[in-house]
Design a protein around this nucleic acid. Sequence first.
DNA 1: AATGAATGAGTCTTCATTCAT
DNA 2: TATGAATGAAGACTCATTCAT
Lengths: 240, 240, 240, 240
Amino acid sequence: MSSIESLDVSAEHSVEPIRQRRKEARPAELTAAALALFVEKGFAATRLDDIAVHAGVSKGTLYLYFDSKDALFKAVIQEGVVPVLDAADEFMADFEGSSAELMQNLMLVWWQRVGNTTLGGLPKLMIGESRNFPEVAAYYHEAVIERGRVLIQRVLQRGIDAGEFRPLPVEMAADVLFAPVLMLAIWRHSMDACGIAARDPEAYLKTHLALSLDGLLIEHNLPPTPLASTKKSGTSVKKK
Amino acid sequence: MSSIESLDVSAEHSVEPIRQRRKEARPAELTAAALALFVEKGFAATRLDDIAVHAGVSKGTLYLYFDSKDALFKAVIQEGVVPVLDAADEFMADFEGSSAELMQNLMLVWWQRVGNTTLGGLPKLMIGESRNFPEVAAYYHEAVIERGRVLIQRVLQRGIDAGEFRPLPVEMAADVLFAPVLMLAIWRHSMDACGIAARDPEAYLKTHLALSLDGLLIEHNLPPTPLASTKKSGTSVKKK
Amino acid sequence: MSSIESLDVSAEHSVEPIRQRRKEARPAELTAAALALFVEKGFAATRLDDIAVHAGVSKGTLYLYFDSKDALFKAVIQEGVVPVLDAADEFMADFEGSSAELMQNLMLVWWQRVGNTTLGGLPKLMIGESRNFPEVAAYYHEAVIERGRVLIQRVLQRGIDAGEFRPLPVEMAADVLFAPVLMLAIWRHSMDACGIAARDPEAYLKTHLALSLDGLLIEHNLPPTPLASTKKSGTSVKKK
Amino acid sequence: MSSIESLDVSAEHSVEPIRQRRKEARPAELTAAALALFVEKGFAATRLDDIAVHAGVSKGTLYLYFDSKDALFKAVIQEGVVPVLDAADEFMADFEGSSAELMQNLMLVWWQRVGNTTLGGLPKLMIGESRNFPEVAAYYHEAVIERGRVLIQRVLQRGIDAGEFRPLPVEMAADVLFAPVLMLAIWRHSMDACGIAARDPEAYLKTHLALSLDGLLIEHNLPPTPLASTKKSGTSVKKK
DNA sequence: AATGAATGAGTCTTCATTCAT
DNA sequence: TATGAATGAAGACTCATTCAT
């Protein structure tokens, strides 16, 4: 289901002798180099030569591990996806505390463990290449995006069920809430990288959370009905 | 200052013979075709041949109007930026009503006039190519991003001054607030275009606005102090 | 006999109204511009665009007078050849004086009227393009080179017959004698034109004539037999 | 000073495995093929494809050794210059005999070792391309032409000092004396190559030498003053 | 397993040539 | 007659891919 055409690049985490360790590490070194360059220049503009140099091997060596440039791209995504999934699973196992805190932790942790790492380039990469690699995009969507969405949706539902959050269309709200965090990661690998600095990430995230939790308005005039049905409530008329 | 090398692509809408009309319209036709393909495939993966076919001209014709593929890219951004600036200027001239309504209008109008049009692809394009075209990125940043930011910041400040919005670090908040709208446009030209549908844009924006205005929490415990210092919220009851 | 394929570019020297004068002058203006650029850059490296600009017309106009770039080249050679032939015919009609003076005049006049003018570029041009335009080369050879050779040969024979010059294989000697003059013209359009100055032309020619007439040696030990049969005489052993 | 950008084409004739031998020989094979075609068609009219075929490699291989067509041209000149310099140095080391014989040897050897070989095409090539490659022309001038000139000048001076040659402006005379030899090489690669045969080289050179040494005139009337002032000669009788 | 020389299909770019006006 | 916009075949150059070592 969630496997691209060729999953033969899967990393088998067996316990082999030390001498083999290096050999086994090779593919990961290659995909790491490829990821960095794909994120920087885009898939088409990245030369295999550069990747090889970046990884400290010869160009021919790439073909010992990957059938083609396309296959390398797929492997890059695949390898990048795995740790994200691991991190996601690890999370939310048994969190005690308010849903607001949970939400806050979720975002901060994502930023620290994913967004602010090399993997933070994946969203930019997939955004740029999804139309050129629809199958990979589908895989990424299913394996990462959808899972991430569900995760946030669960947090939202948790808050709603606990009477902490207002009733909301969780599917929509989840996307809206994650967008600023995604943009932070995207920015870091685009504008940011060419001298146009973004806001301070920590403060940015803090603002995002505060805004999301409390909203802009000082005086709220919220109806008890769920948001989905409140057509005109968004621009609620204040008493003035 | 904020103009790339050649700004001579200005379209003077004089009343000339039909054949001249065509000649003058050519560059715009070419950049339109180029924009569509650059957004779809990325700069490097787009062949000039395809652009030419898309525009209904021969390959050589492109070189009558643009010195190189790079120059064409720059022109695409430049041409795309102009209408956005025009729309921005036109906006916020004299709006009567609450700042919340103003904010809502701003986003809806941007979506209808920019995000949901061909120009909506520009953010995706610039995100993907900024590191390959730093000067163009700088121009785009200055001419579009910064102006857009300031616009939102002004709306926020307007609301704060009127006692409608809570005091906020407007610079941060502006970026946070625009991120979901940007992501909507980005999504439309990436995942969306390869079958992975996003949420319904209208509903998505509505949720975003509702969330931004009222926040997630049912019970707000907001201190009168600026947002940056509000750490542990979520327990006490708002006056209502 | 001495016509290239298409001789339809021949200039008809009729006496037409002034308004036509311009029209008639066109081809000559075009070939003049072409000659200058062909000599400067070579045939292949010269763009018709440049020629048109140089001649102050549009590119399309060239095709009103010449069928193709090749045809233009042929016309350039043809036009260049005519005045040279005229000058040659005019010369040597009835010269009174020593053959040495005649030879001297021949060379000086050629330099002044041909070598040192725009036409002086023809040798360089033909040398560079002869293998790409064998027919043109053949025409040029027959119409110019061979006639020039014969001219010099006649001067030599005149001197020999008058007992002024030693008996020599006139065919060989003619070529040898004209080589330095040709090199002077060639140099002027190659090295000379890029800052590497040749010797002063006048002094150079003077040296050439003196050398040709009197030779290097102080003490000559010439046998009365013609040069062709004097195998070892060139390195005549001086008594010492 | 007199080296173009890259002089790293030096061929180190070490004793390496066969495959390495080939790798090292490649650049020379490529420049050899390029020289042949550049001389034949000129730089602009020669296609890299043809050079590749001529050298028995693929088009891409050329780019393994040379950055561009221009770089290949430079290398061709550079490689061609080296053996000429070597031959020149080797020459005139310790020659015993008359200066006339020395001059004769110089010309014959040049013809046999340079003019009549592939390298004989260099003059034609440089004449045709000097204005398109001024820096290369400057290098060629300094490294080859100027050195050749000096060589001949030294021979002339040697003869003058020994009382064998008349006092002459050696700089002028050297150029004049070498011109016919150069023309012989130029001719061989231009007219000659398209069916218009030149004179027999050996006989041509012999005539050149005889003429240069003894002059045309039977009766010399040479004043003891330097050649530059001998205007009207040809009447009085030499002592014998 | 690793290399890097060699390949050639693919892309950008140029420019001789055409043609509607 | 003259123009210059448009064309497309041709050529320089790149780079993913192969393969002998």
